[in-house]
């Protein structure tokens, strides 16, 4: 059975530059990461602020032997958002992950990745995009195990990779309106970059005090952290080629090593799960999407 890779997903939060620098210089030293996605998927306004740090990060990662993939924005509507996507996709020697159909158009005909914000729900879509040059597909979070199995099988037939996110808060929605800024009384245009105050997004609770969602700039995430560990063996058996870990405000290298040890048989699933639950601390875990039930639930 071929080796299952591990990827560090794109940073979804608006971390300040020193924290970004720390994340990527650490990832550069971590051999458990086969691929590191950099790039901004949520808000184009964050890109110029972090540009210099992210450029340095890409260089550091590549020098250290990590494969770098550039994730494109998931919602590009205004001119500056569109330009960010087009400028990125037009650099021919970059490996880019498309997160909207506009990026797919520019990337057609050369190898590219398809990100989880693209609606790849069935083998027909996977085939249609593979025909146009897609070589790797990170499936949407809400695809359940049966869907993953069918698409991973087809991907293997086609010689492309299916990747599944196993760690991180699932993005659930994106809007042209910034609900995060709006909560502080600002608009998207006048946002004051308030999203950088919350390194794992701002909690949204119900009026009865239940934890529910997370505001992250234009994006709304679940409150719970997706955690697939005892499912990893099944994912491998289905033919999933890569696991994605979405950066949280914690030691992501340590998280990656737990998954590498699990994949390489140096630890078992129960131990790995206990270790990761311990690292999550008081964050709630969830795996409902995988089992085809409420995404917020944890079916232990």
């Amino acid at each position: 059975m071929s080796r299952v890779e591990i990827a560090l997903g794109p940073l979804t939060y608006n971390w300040q530059n020193p924290a970004r620098e720390a994340l990527y210089s650490a990832a550069a030293t971590e051999e458990a990461f086969d691929i590191v996605y950099i790039g901004e998927t949520v808000c184009a306004k964050r890109i110029p602020v972090a540009a210099a740090v992210m450029a340095d990060a890409a260089e550091t990662l590549e020098k250290a032997g990590r494969k770098v993939v550039y994730s494109a924005l998931s919602l590009a509507t205004n001119e500056s958002e569109r330009r960010q996507v087009t400028d990125l996709c037009e650099v021919e020697d970059l490996l880019v992950e498309a997160n909207d159909a506009g990026a797919l158009r520019t990337l057609a005909g050369r190898p590219h990745f398809v990100g989880p914000h693209m609606n790849v729900y069935n083998p027909g879509t996977l085939e249609a995009l593979a025909e146009r040059g897609a070589v790797s597909f990170c499936l949407p979070w809400e695809v359940n195990r049966k869907g993953i199995e069918v698409m991973a099988r087809r991907a293997n037939d086609l010689g492309v990779v299916v990747e599944i996110e196993v760690f991180g808060k699932a993005p659930l929605a994106i809007s042209a309106r910034c609900h995060h800024a709006r909560a502080y009384g600002f608009t998207k245009d006048s946002c004051q970059y308030v999203c950088d105050r919350d390194p794992e997004g701002m909690a949204v609770r119900t009026l009865d005090g239940q934890n529910f969602l997370t505001l992250n700039g234009l994006q709304t995430q679940g409150h719970a952290v997706t955690l697939l560990v005892s499912e990893v063996q099944a994912l491998r058996d289905m033919g999933v080629g890569r696991l994605r870990l979405s950066p949280m405000n914690m030691d992501m290298n340590a998280v990656a090593r737990v998954y590498r040890d699990l994949l390489d048989g140096r630890t078992d699933a129960a131990t790995a799960e206990q270790t990761l639950l311990g690292m999550l601390g008081d964050r709630e875990p969830a795996n409902g999407f995988y089992y085809g039930v409420e995404g917020s639930t944890w079916a232990a």
Partner: peptide, 12 residues
């Protein structure tokens, strides 16, 4: 939310 990009209901 951007249509076709929303799984809030699935989460709940």
């Amino acid at each position: 939310m951007a249509e076709g990009r929303c799984s809030l209901s699935s989460y709940a």
